[in-house]
Write a protein that binds this DNA or RNA. Structure first.
Length: 887
RNA sequence: GCGAGGGUAGCCGAGCCAGGCCAAAGGCGGUGGGCUUAAGACCCGCUCCCGUAGGGGUCCCUGGGUUCGAAUCCCAGCCCUCGCACCA
């Protein structure tokens, strides 16, 4: 048992030391001194236990933070708790406790688990969103936004989850996932979404609600995506789609004494409008319904979700096309949606698929007004033609291209450039207890009045079990005086969406105890953007859009200089088990500690690069476990024995070069966050060290350096193990605070050297195999003659159309022999494929240093020598490819 | 339908941005051998085809193209994954 490494046996010790030394902490002074490296993982919700997704996420951030720290950077790597939210209320209800106690218990558990995993956080900066000291700043920011016109209070049709008993933001409504399939009629009810949390079908309700006007930033949010090079394309694309900006025009059609505004991205097709259609919820539809039974019926059917496909009803109204002056009928049609554009369209059956379908269904005329551009589709293919073209109607626009027409039409009095967005304002009201109270007082005379800053925080009342909202049940909370007129008034009982809490938490970490402001603007402007943020892509349009919005909003009220919160975003992939996403609800989850905490994190990092999904397999986990044991055994064996040569031998140089090469390779992989590649390199290196060790008495300097490098390279990935190795090797201080290793020699040249050894070994294997030499006695490696290197260099320098053979043979250093001539012909045939080669001296040295590998593998004596100058004995020797004689 | 990202040997996956060092890393699985009383662990090979001296053939979804040279660059197509979608 003694030479087995068990992290559980040492974790407490190292945790204690780390804490005592404060290795993961940054002082406030250091923070104030200016930007270091800010590494952030997703804000954990306080569910009470870590799942594999957390482990993976935090293993990645921890590796990055540790690596950067070892490179001498001041790394801010904080942790805190997204502590408000509905599940705590449900848990409290089920367990007959209150959300706060429940949440605090969960936090204790989770902090403990995180520490056990060996994650190095600056716990001095821990924040908890359900602390009044935190959420008061939500309220304070609400007030600032209120002053700045970013807060709206309006009655709205909102998403209501009957199970959660609260409203949901649009982004929190998911597709039901029920395939509508071939029965294309089911779109009728539009909005058959489900709650993102409990998957209960969402209902619609009309409520007075609080909003942040994120749509004010729609343009900037979508434009900013172009410059977010550090973000994955997929996330940028998702945000682009979600914001859904469409440029077009609004066109006013006169209807009786009134008018209908239609939005279109193709105003150039206005000449072909043969009808106007409005959504069932459009004002014109309601007016038309008065006294018209057919329209009333249709609206009823639409309300029940029964109006399907291309159904519609003629209102009897006519609309005048402002450009052509023609009058066209006005329809109510279910395919026109209330919340898209203006809720009304001009029907151009000749140039729009849906309009064409509707016109066919309703027997409306189709008028072609655009001639397809040359080369576009077959000229008179069947309509609708939806591409660009040339206007073919008589009049001032005739002959203009689509885009010229669009420009010209903007001069028309009834047409205005317009842009629509899919993005809606952020509904932040929640009818729940466990959140930040919205700091508003409702006064009969003064209306909704913000609570003055000096009266913040508005604290949550004590929790009571009730079927409704506990805030509304507490008269102590509810009853207050109007801040404006002093008359009795009542408090707002809605709390804020918890995404408000997590929209600026990364700023609070910089000064978690600041009592005068949510964060220090100067410090925050210095430290932002966050250098690396790691999180799952499930928050692409929630959290990750909100932080971009909030950051801009904060900049605009003068609290921040930065407008983007995150420089580089890494989306970690999913951990699969039996082909499915690992999750408790599927029953295929593996608890993080089941296989040992450090093994689990090491496995998670070794299995794939951060962005990639990977499968949890027992074999791969056990490989990660064995890998730890290997390293531990190697180091303890060395530290117990401490022997070794003092004098170096030629083959030690081989090891020293490999140490340098490994450092370079692993460093490169760390820079790219490719931890699985780093581990592969480290494993190969460890194997080489073992082999070297087994080959004879190691040179103490090189071997111990190799082991120390090994410990350092693994330190960001397996911190407990690394500390154990480091102390066994008598390393100075803590490895967590040690310097990243550097190569002693120039590394780039190694690649060629390494290839030389590798291919030569392969060649020997090949020969013994093909010729069936089972037990070679002697292997002779003959480095090519000097002249062949000259010839090689000469050939490489010849311009593409020059005569290679001539130039090579003209070289004085190249002898006038048949062998040389053949080689020149060879070189000529290469035309360009000249990989770098070593000098003959270097080649010989490298091979000599590697002879132990040949001896070890083939059990033969090995000699290395240079070919005689005339080259006659060189045989097949070429630069980078020694002749091989086996006997 | 629109948009994004992909298709690499039995499997998982590097490589592709910056073409030549690519028959193509590493792991898994399979297989031969070493160590061992044995198992496990560990170590060294092999794992597209042919080959009695390091060679030859075919290969990175398919088909074209650029280039002295393509897994890598360009074009077209097929397939997969994801996002959006009666979106005007």
């Amino acid at each position: 048992m003694s030479n087995r490494y068990t992290h559980a046996r040492v974790q407490e010790y190292w945790q204690h030391i780390w804490e005592r030394e404060g290795v993961y902490e940054l002082s406030d002074e250091r923070i104030k001194d200016g930007p270091g490296t800010y590494v952030l993982g997703m804000f954990p919700y306080t569910s009470g236990s870590l799942h594999m997704g957390h482990i993976r996420n935090y293993a990645i951030t921890d590796a990055i933070a540790r690596y950067r720290r070892m490179n001498g950077e001041a790394v801010l790597h904080p942790m805190g708790w997204d502590a408000f939210g509905l599940p705590a209320e449900n848990a409290a209800y089920d367990r007959d406790t209150d959300p706060e106690s429940w949440t605090r218990t969960c936090i204790e558990q989770m902090r403990d688990e995180l520490e056990r995993m060996g994650f190095g956080y600056d716990w001095s900066r821990e924040i908890t969103t359900c602390d009044p000291d935190y959420y008061r700043w939500n309220q304070w920011l609400f007030n600032r936004f209120y002053e700045d016109g970013l807060v709206e209070y309006t009655g709205a049709q909102v998403n209501w989850c009957p199970d959660c008993e609260t409203v949901l933001a649009d982004a929190q409504v998911e597709d039901s996932g029920e395939e509508t399939g071939e029965t294309a009629e089911s779109h009728a009810s539009h909005g058959d979404g489900v709650c993102w949390r409990c998957h209960t079908p969402v209902q619609r309700r009309e409520l007075d609600q609080w909003f942040f006007t994120i749509t004010d930033y729609a343009d900037e949010l979508v434009d900013g995506l172009d410059d977010l090079d550090g973000w994955p394309d997929s996330i940028r694309e998702i945000q682009r789609n979600w914001i859904g900006r469409r440029d077009g025009a609004e066109i006013r059609f006169a209807v009786e004494d009134d008018s209908i505004e239609v939005f279109t991205t193709r105003p150039d097709t206005v000449f072909g409008a043969t009808y106007v259609a409005v959504a069932p919820g459009h004002a014109t539809a309601r007016q038309a319904a008065a006294g018209d039974e057919a329209v009333t019926d249709y609206l009823d059917r639409a309300a029940d979700g029964q109006a399907e496909g291309m159904s519609g009803v003629d209102t009897g109204l006519t609309a005048t096309n402002p450009v052509t002056g023609e009058t066209v009928p006005v329809y109510v049609a279910a395919y026109v949606l209330d919340d898209v554009g203006t809720g009304a369209v001009m029907g151009v059956p000749a140039h729009n698929e849906r309009d064409h379908a509707f016109a066919s269904e309703q027997g409306l005329p189709v008028e072609q007004v655009l001639e397809p551009d040359e080369g576009q589709a077959d000229a008179d293919a069947t309509l609708p033609y939806t591409g660009e073209g040339t206007v073919v109607v008589d009049g001032e626009y005739e002959g203009l291209t689509s885009s010229a027409t669009r420009d010209r039409l903007l001069d028309h009095a009834a047409i205005e450039a317009a842009t629509t967005y899919r993005l809606r304002d952020w509904l932040i009201s929640r009818q729940r207890y466990w959140g930040t109270p919205i700091p508003i007082v409702h006064c009969e005379d003064c209306g909704a009045v913000p609570v003055p800053d000096e009266n913040l925080p508005v604290e949550l009342p004590e929790y009571v079990q009730t079927t409704g909202n506990p805030l509304a049940a507490s008269t102590d909370f509810l009853d207050t005086d109007c801040p404006d007129c002093g008359e009795p008034a009542t408090r707002e009982t809605d709390t804020m969406d918890t995404f408000v809490d997590s929209s600026w938490y990364f700023l609070r970490y910089l000064n978690p105890d600041l009592s005068a402001a949510p964060f220090d603007s100067d410090v925050a402007s210095d430290w932002l953007p966050v250098d690396v943020y790691v999180g799952g892509d499930e928050h692409a349009v929630l959290h990750l859009l909100y932080i971009r919005f909030l950051t801009r909003a904060l900049a605009d009220i003068g609290l921040l200089d930065q407008r983007e919160p995150v420089e580089r975003l890494v989306n970690q992939g999913t951990v699969l088990h039996s082909g499915e996403k690992m999750s408790k609800s599927k029953g295929n989850d593996v608890a993080p500690h089941e296989y040992g905490a450090e093994t689990t994190r090491l496995f998670a990092l070794s299995a794939a690069h951060p962005g990639q999904d990977f499968e949890w397999t027992a074999t791969d986990v056990s490989n990660a476990y064995e890998f730890q044991q290997d390293l531990y055994r190697m180091v303890t064996a060395f530290s117990e024995d401490r022997g070794g040569r003092i004098e170096s031998e030629p083959h030690d140089a081989y090891l020293e070069r490999e140490i340098d090469r490994t450092i370079a390779a692993v460093t490169d992989e760390y820079e790219r966050f490719r931890f699985h590649r780093a581990i592969t390199e480290i494993q190969q290196f460890a194997r080489l060290l073992r082999r070297y060790r087994n080959n004879g008495t190691p040179y103490r300097f090189a071997y111990s350096r190799g082991l120390r490098v090994l410990a350092k390279l693994i330190a960001p990935l397996a911190p407990y193990l690394a500390e154990e190795l480091w102390s066994a090797l008598d390393g100075e201080g803590l490895i967590a605070a040690a310097d990243w290793p550097t190569a002693l020699q120039d590394v780039p040249a190694y690649r060629v050297e390494r290839e030389l050894v590798r291919t030569t070994l392969e060649d020997v294997r090949d020969i013994t195999d093909v010729v069936d030499i089972t037990d070679p006695e002697e292997i002779e490696l003959v480095v090519a003659p000097e002249w062949s290197y000259h010839a090689y260099d000469t050939a490489r320098d010849v311009t593409p159309d020059g005569s290679v053979v001539g130039r090579v043979m003209d070289d004085d250093a190249v002898p006038d022999t048949e062998v040389a001539a053949d080689y020149a012909v060879d070189l000529a045939a290469r035309s360009g494929g000249f990989e770098p080669v070593l000098s003959p001296e270097r080649e010989q040295t490298v091979l000599e240093q590697a002879t132990w590998l040949f001896e070890d593998e083939f059990g033969a004596d090995v000699t290395v020598r240079r070919a005689a100058p005339d080259g006659e004995q060189a045989g097949t020797a070429r630069p980078n490819k020694p002749a091989i004689h086996i006997s």
